[in-house]
Design a protein around this nucleic acid. Structure first.
Lengths: 128, 128
DNA sequence: CCAATTATAGATATTATAAATCTATTATAT
DNA sequence: ATATAATAGATTTATAATATCTATAATTGG
C-alpha cells in the first residue's frame, strides 16, 4: 500500500523543470539526475513514460532533452501517477462476493476519495 | 499501492463471524478456513494479529477458537487495516524537501481522505 | 560524413515485501 | 492421557519495484 518511488521521482523532476525554465528550454536527463540524485538511466526510463503520456516532449541528440508541453498547467498529480504506475486498484478482493460485497465497496469508496484528491491537484497548484 | 490480501482475509473472516453467531460462539480457524478457502495456518497467523489488537479473543485447545469481542460494533475498517499491516505511509518522499514540500503535502492530504473513509466505516456498517 | 550528445528499448540483475508453508510448542476440554 | 486448537519462529515461494547495463536510434555541429 504505497505509491511508487518512480512517481515521486517523476513529480520532483517535473517540479524542477517547471521552476527552472517553464516550457522554454530542453533539459537533458543528466541535469535532472544531478538535481535529484537519481541515476540517469533509471530517471530517463521513468521520464519516457511521461513522454508517452504526452505531458512532456523529448528530443534525442545533442542539445536535446526533455521539455514541458504547453498544457502542463492542466496536468494533475493523478495523471502522473497513472502515467507511471498505470491505473491501479488499491484493493483486489480475493473472494468472488460480487457487486454487493460491502467490504469491496468500502475499499472502492476510500480509493475514490484518494484519487479525487489527486485529480483535483494540478501541477500548477504545486508551484504556488 | 495496494491493500494486503491479509487485510482482505481478516475482514472477510470477521464478517463471517459476525453473520454466523455474533459474539456468542467460539469459531475454530478451520471453519473460517473452509468458508474462505484460505489455508488454516496462514489465516490463523492473520487472525492472531486481530487478537493482539483486541478486537477478537481466542482460546486454545479443544472447543476453542476465535470469538468476537463485545465492542466489535465500534471497530472500524481502518482499525483492521492497522491491526494487520500497521500504520502505513502511502507515500515516502525520497527527497528531503522538508515540511513545505507540496508534493508530499498533496500525497498526505490524499492519504488522509482515504484513511478517514475507512475510519468512518465500522464493521457494523458492513452488515446492514 | 564524422564525432559527440542524448533519448529509447530490451534484457537482466537486485532488493524488498507479501504470501504461504512447516514444525514445534503451549493451552484446554473431556 | 489424548485429541483439539491457537501461537511462535523459521523458512520458503512468489511477485513486484527498483536499478543497472548494453545496444540502438536520433540530432547537432564541425
Amino acid at each position: 500500500m504505497k505509491f511508487s518511488k518512480a512517481t515521486d521521482y517523476a513529480l520532483h523532476a517535473l517540479m524542477y523543470m517547471i521552476h527552472r525554465d517553464g516550457e522554454t528550454t530542453k533539459i537533458p536527463v543528466q541535469d535532472l539526475s544531478l538535481a535529484l540524485n537519481v541515476s540517469t538511466t533509471y530517471l530517463s526510463k521513468v521520464l519516457t513514460r511521461i513522454v508517452k503520456a504526452n505531458y512532456i516532449s523529448s528530443t534525442s541528440g545533442a542539445k536535446g532533452g526533455y521539455r514541458l508541453q504547453q498544457n502542463w498547467e492542466n496536468v494533475s498529480v493523478y495523471d502522473i501517477v497513472v502515467a507511471i504506475d498505470g491505473v491501479q486498484t488499491l484493493f483486489e478482493d480475493s473472494f468472488d462476493h460480487g457487486e454487493e460485497c460491502r467490504i469491496q465497496a468500502t475499499m472502492m469508496e476510500a480509493q475514490e476519495n484518494l484519487i479525487n484528491t489527486l485529480k483535483n491537484k494540478k501541477l500548477k497548484d504545486l508551484t504556488v
